[in-house]
Amino acid sequence: MTHKPDPTPPLRDIRQTRLGRRGFLGSSAAALAGVAAFRPAHAQTPPATAEYTPEFFNAAQWAFVIAAADTLIPADEYGPSGSEAGVPVFLDRHMQTPYAQGSIWFREGPFDETLGRDFGYQGPLALADIVQTGIDQADAWCRDTRGAGFADLDEEARIAVLTALEKGEPEFARVSASRFFSDFWKELQVGYFADPSWGGNRDQAAWKGIGYPGVRADYSDWVTVREAYPLPPVDLAGNRG
């Protein structure tokens, strides 16, 4: 049951790299060095969804992600849709981080899921595997029950599928539908609202839509003012939204 100690999880930044999944399974010394390493400025603007070639997801999964992002986050007066904001780009990149690959979760067995919901996910999979496996299962379920993959369904049907997943109605073999939905939807929200350098929230449009000032992090002048905050957001790269 004992496994090899893996000192402090690798916290290196992959936003500026194109490392594949295996690239993160390096030595612990490299991981530690990564903690202190200087990170270049957030200068590079990530590509739009349409211009991006996924590295983590295959074509079918990518179509699912785009369709789901736009169903869960439709465009309206409060901001762009998920794919317009680059959320699929965020997700493809984020799935390749040490975090999504399981670096900060305890993942050794035995795996006992009998205690129930109060004790959280008790399976062996990392977040990236939960998302990827969940997408495959959900897409297969759409084909079995509705005769088409998720991306080929109309909006009404997509909403019905996502509602069923959220409620845990389909019986999936490896990852429960509700577990998948919960982790997947959380990831999409993070992607929508994270700093644009992570791939989503293009042009800080998601922040502007909800009135969030981004990384300004200095409100001494507004604590006791009882009005709307007047300044637009700022991102990590210093761009004004």
Binding site: L72, P74, D76, Y78, I159, G211, Y212
Partner: peptide, 13 residues
């Protein structure tokens, strides 16, 4: 999630 979700987030924030 879906339609109306962002407006709720804005309200809460």
């Amino acid at each position: 999630w879906g339609r109306g979700w962002k407006q709720g987030v804005r309200q809460g924030l």
